[in-house]
Simulated scan of single mutants.
Amino acid sequence: MPAQAWVTLIVGLVAAIGVIVTMTQKQRADNRREWWTRFEWALEATHSTNRDPRRDRWRVIANLAESRLMTATERSLVSELIGGITTEAVNADDLGVPSENSSEED
């Protein structure tokens, strides 16, 4: 095989690797953007006055908080925003949501 053919092959392989890396980075960025959109939605929905959807949104937040898509900065921010809510707290229904037996009158 002549030298020109080898050069063409190498350039083609480098270009293919570049395309694969670019596509992988774009997919990860898109997934992270979607993660943040879901987190914002769930966080806003925790202000619902209806108990069941509110509890469900906290579960979504707890699930999202375990995602590998978060960076260290986002993990710190999420930790501060949700005040240390854990899966155990979600399962125990200890979410600061008034129970059905409690009254809201003070």
Rank of each mutant, 00 (worst) to 15 (best):
M1C: 04
P2Q: 09
P2H: 10
A3W: 12
A3K: 11
Q4Y: 07
A5K: 14
A5Q: 15
W6N: 14
T8K: 02
I10H: 09
I10G: 04
V11Y: 05
V11G: 02
V11W: 03
A15P: 10
I17H: 07
I17D: 09
G18V: 00
V19T: 05
I20S: 11
I20L: 15
I20R: 14
V21Q: 11
T22Q: 10
T24Y: 12
T24W: 12
K26Y: 04
Q27P: 12
Q27L: 13
A29G: 11
A29F: 08
R32E: 12
R33S: 13
E34P: 00
E34T: 14
T37R: 15
T37D: 13
R38W: 08
W41L: 09
L43G: 02
E44H: 08
E44Y: 11
A45M: 07
T46H: 00
T46R: 00
H47V: 05
H47F: 13
S48H: 08
T49M: 13
R51M: 07
D52T: 15
D52R: 07
P53E: 06
R57G: 00
W58L: 01
W58K: 01
W58F: 14
R59H: 07
V60W: 11
I61E: 02
A62F: 10
A62Y: 10
A65M: 11
R68C: 03
L69E: 12
L69F: 07
M70G: 01
M70S: 07
T71E: 04
T71A: 05
T71L: 05
T73W: 00
T73I: 03
T73E: 04
E74H: 05
R75V: 04
S76N: 06
S76Q: 05
S76V: 01
L77G: 01
L77A: 03
S79C: 02
L81Q: 04
I82P: 10
G83M: 10
G84V: 06
I85T: 09
T86P: 02
T87H: 08
E88V: 05
E88H: 08
A89G: 03
V90R: 09
V90W: 15
N91K: 15
A92E: 13
D93F: 01
D94K: 06
D94P: 03
L95F: 08
L95Y: 08
G96D: 03
G96K: 09
G96A: 08
G96C: 06
P98C: 04
S99P: 14
S99Y: 02
E100S: 03
N101M: 10
N101C: 06
S102F: 09
S103V: 02
E104W: 13
D106F: 15
